[in-house]
Design a binder for these strands. Sequence first.
DNA 1: CGGCATTGACAT
DNA 2: ATGTCAATGCCG
Length: 358
Amino acid sequence: MGTRMQARLAYFGVGVLAGVGAGAGYWRVYKQLELSDSLESRHKNTELPLEQRVFKYGRPESPFSSRTYTSHSVLYDHVHKVPLWSAEVITPQGISGPAKRGNSRFQPDPTILTRFSSGNADYLKSGWSRGHMTPAADCKHCQSAMDDSHYLTNIVPQDFNNNSGYWNRLEMFCRDLAEKYPAVYVTSGPLYLPSPSLDDGGKKFVKYQVIGAGKVAVPTHLYKVILAETDDSSDPASQPPPSLGVFVVPNKPLGDEELTSFQTTLTELETLCGISFHSKLDRSNVSDLCKTDKCKLMTTLELKQFVYSLRLGRAKSEEQIGEILDEAKKEGLERDSVIAQSAAQQGNKLNTSATNGS
DNA sequence: CGGCATTGACAT
DNA sequence: ATGTCAATGCCG
């Protein structure tokens, strides 16, 4: 305490020598010293451990614990108002079922304090869509899972075209994997990656838009970690290695880019987002998903055909069917292919309702 | 499959 | 007047 006073006196001395504010300055510094002395003498708990002293009025709290819902788990980012990650395990049973998307609505997660939560108003007319991280289509097993997936803790602002296009096809790819592997573990989330500034000498900046009154962050990229189990038998040593695929996809309109062009390593992703994934996984014993599998997404044209076949299934009149088929043909689709796929979808629908119904 | 906008009923 | 909700139709 003596040394601090000396320091102040020394500073005062320099001030006087410099001739700054002679009279009034002297008085001000004198009063300040007097005040400091009395404050120091009034702080009596200097003998307590620092832990007790600095957090006397409570420790800074970031409510960073994940929450598990009916069929997915989320760690929420209270700063950006989107998930940090959303995790699920896809199985054939989980992705077929009676739950309907139309019965669920996007809504704030009731477990998040309002001032930390995004709202639908932030998204509407923002120019960005509400993109599921754990997809709604993976939550068809029961309606509560479907409802949970619509909590805004599972949603990020996503480019419309990307959401219904490339990312949609990537999600379909994951569901297809679930038909080939006993279990597919998928973790998805947003990224805010630096990019070189054109008007500032190529220096790198992290730049992202925020939308709505809640200032919800629009990620520059989205990631997906896909871990496909080849065997779920009890003895891990005898199992073939699981397949791992990690992808970082820009949050913008995309076409028929190769999925492998967005592939990266798990370690690289981890350094990008500061999160460790699958800590119990033996990384020396995993195979590249894009080697064991083709990592081929449905093409944009194939998705278009898929969409038209869905519309065909909902058509209410012969006349409407004709209109849809005409329009599909203008888009470069084969009439018979659309009809055939529509029929196949109806068949699937009957099968799933038969296995889950009555 | 992925979304949005409009509408009408109802409450504030 | 203004906001919420669910049903419906629309588009990519």
